[in-house]
């Protein structure tokens, strides 16, 4: 190994123009390396679009098939928590974007602050999500595990929701399909939350690295690409929120 680096070092002095230590040897310029990495990150995000795309398509089709069940299932969600979580996630996207700017400007402590804020807001999002999940558990609305049709066969028994929506009782066959709504609810928000957990894990690593000054040397690729991932997760939520929480409010 030391031999190899010595040779690489020697050729560099002879032939190549000088380049920063973080430029990979097979790239001609930093610009080329940045373009290639950016392209690769977007290709990964495309696979993510298609991954969530399958869930969105399933939601679209089942919502059309079992419309009344999906409407009443949706009435069980709290618009308050959903809105608050949307605001939290958008704010975390903003702090992440500011983090990228700080890295570009080589502001080390500001970058650490932005990353920590993003990390904390990510945790707040998951905290609120777990409050919502807990409520589903309490009300026996966890498909396959702990499910009860009372809220849909006899909506008046579910006081809080009934006061808001005055839903009519669903026939048994349709009421059973509310389980499908909650299945998709948990699958979509759960996969989204998993992406958040992975993101928070990477953020932990990044905060340590940023403190050591790893991203404020002019090489911002890692922060930038993580930013793309984080914003992507934000976009998924931007669509989940209206589809799961909002659009069924007036549908009866």
């Amino acid at each position: 190994m030391p031999e190899n680096t010595a040779i690489a070092g020697a050729t560099e002095v002879e032939g190549h123009h000088e380049h920063p230590p973080y430029q990979r040897h097979h790239f001609e310029t930093m610009g080329q390396q940045n373009d290639a990495t950016n392209f690769a990150m977007w290709l990964f995000l495309l696979t993510e679009i298609m991954f969530f795309g399958g869930l969105f398509t399933a939601y679209l089709i089942y919502r059309n098939w079992y419309y009344p069940a999906f409407v009443q299932g949706s009435h069980q969600l709290s618009i308050f928590w959903g809105t608050l979580n949307t605001a939290v996630l958008i704010t975390s996207s903003f702090t992440m974007a500011m983090g990228v700017w700080c890295a570009e400007m080589r502001k080390k402590s500001a970058l650490v602050l932005c990353l920590v804020l993003t990390f904390v807001l990510g945790l707040v999002f998951l905290g609120i999500k777990s409050i919502e999940y807990h409520e589903k558990w309490e009300k026996h609305h966890v498909p396959g595990l702990r499910y009860n049709l009372d809220s849909f066969l006899n909506p008046a028994s579910d006081h809080e929701v009934y006061q808001e929506y005055h839903d009519k009782p669903l026939p048994l066959d349709m009421a059973r399909h509310t389980e499908l709504y909650f299945f998709l609810y948990f699958a979509m928000t759960g996969m989204h939350a998993l992406h958040m957990i992975i993101g928070i894990g990477i953020l932990t690593f990044m905060i340590i690295q940023a403190q050591r000054g790893a991203y404020t040397t002019g090489h911002v690729t890692f922060v930038e690409n993580f930013g793309l991932y984080w914003h992507f997760v934000d976009i998924i939520w931007i669509f989940l929120f209206p589809l799961l929480y909002l659009i069924s409010r007036h549908a009866n």
């Binding site: 974007a97 930013g227 914003h231 992507f232 934000d234 976009i235 929120f241």
Partner: peptide, 14 residues
């Protein structure tokens, strides 16, 4: 509205 929001995020944040 969701599409407009997503576009803002993609065009500027990303």
């Amino acid at each position: 509205i969701a599409i407009v929001k997503a576009m803002l995020v993609v065009l500027f944040f990303m």
